[in-house]
Amino acid sequence: MQRHGPNEHGRDFIVGDIHGQLALLYGQLEAVGFDYQRDRLFSVGDLIDRGADSLQCLSLALEPWFFAVRGNHEMLAHDALLGEERGSLKTRDAWMINGGTWALEAGLDEAQTMLQQALPSMPYAREISVAGKRLGIVHAEPPKDWNDLATTSQDLLWGRTRIRRGDETPVRGIDAVVVGHTIVERPIWLGNVYYLDTGAFTTGRLTLIEACTLMSGVGS
Rank of each mutant, 00 (worst) to 15 (best):
L24G: 02
L25W: 00
Y26G: 08
G27C: 11
A31G: 11
G33W: 14
D35T: 02
Y36V: 07
R40Y: 14
R40I: 07
L41V: 08
F42P: 10
S43T: 00
S43P: 04
V44D: 00
D46Q: 12
D49R: 14
R50D: 01
A52D: 13
A61H: 01
L62P: 09
W65N: 06
G71H: 07
N72Q: 04
A77S: 08
H78P: 04
L81D: 05
R86P: 04
L89S: 04
T91R: 11
I97Q: 10
G99I: 05
G100D: 05
G100S: 09
G100M: 04
T101D: 12
W102E: 09
A103L: 11
A103H: 00
A103G: 15
L104A: 06
L104F: 08
E105Q: 06
A106K: 10
A106Q: 07
G107Y: 06
G107C: 07
G107P: 05
L108I: 14
D109H: 09
D109M: 01
E110P: 02
T113C: 01
T113M: 01
Q117H: 07
A118L: 09
A118I: 01
P120M: 03
S121M: 11
P123W: 09
Y124R: 01
R126K: 14
I128T: 01
S129L: 13
S129A: 14
G132A: 05
K133F: 13
L135E: 14
V138L: 02
A140D: 04
P143Q: 04
D145H: 15
N147C: 11
D148C: 09
L149M: 01
T151R: 09
T152K: 08
W158R: 03
R162V: 12
D167M: 08
D167P: 00
